[in-house]
Computed example of a mutant assay.
Amino acid sequence: MLGFRSSRRDERRRARAIRALFIRHGAERTPDGRSLQLLRTWLSPAQRAQFAGKGYFEVIGGDTGRQYRIYAGASTNVCEIDEKGRPTRGLCFMPRGNLPVGDVMLSQKIALECCENRALEVARRFAPTGFMFRRSRLLG
């Protein structure tokens, strides 16, 4: 009998797929589900449509007017985007504590819109890679 042995990569891929299904379809009785419901109430109709269709939504920075894309997730999920909609630099910042994913994303949205410069001061930067696009396709 042949045994199936999954790799860590397969396990991570499965976990991302499960999280994507969860984010997409709710589970409103859980903390993550309720936090995503709250997030959706704070999104504009255009942002809600973006999030539902693509797995991310875009916001305009309150201090500089730069455009940012917030992908579904709790870390390394924010990118500054250029005028053509391409990620130019990744930003990692989040509130303290172990919060549900929707609460993290809502805090990132509010921080960029209301105190963008302070958020940028504390953010760690990273080079956006193809994973940002794969993540959005996975959720979309």
Rank of each mutant, 00 (worst) to 15 (best):
R16V: 02
R19N: 08
D32G: 00
S44H: 01
L36P: 00
Q47D: 06
S35K: 06
G61D: 07
R34T: 05
G62C: 13
F57K: 08
I23W: 04
H25C: 07
K54S: 13
R24S: 13
P31C: 02
F22T: 11
V59M: 06
R48A: 14
A27T: 01
Q67C: 12
A20E: 02
A20D: 03
R24G: 14
Q50T: 08
R24N: 14
V59H: 01
Q67F: 00
G65D: 08
G55F: 04
V59S: 02
G73F: 03
K54I: 06
G26D: 06
G61I: 06
D63V: 04
R40Q: 09
T64E: 04
L39D: 06
D32P: 00
L39A: 09
T30K: 01
E28M: 06
L21I: 04
G33D: 06
R66Y: 07
A72R: 01
I60L: 13
S75G: 05
R34D: 03
G61N: 05
Q47S: 03
L21K: 02
E58C: 11
Q37K: 06
F22G: 07
G26V: 10
R48I: 08
R40S: 09
R40I: 02
I23C: 10
E58W: 00
A72N: 09
Q37V: 11
G73E: 05
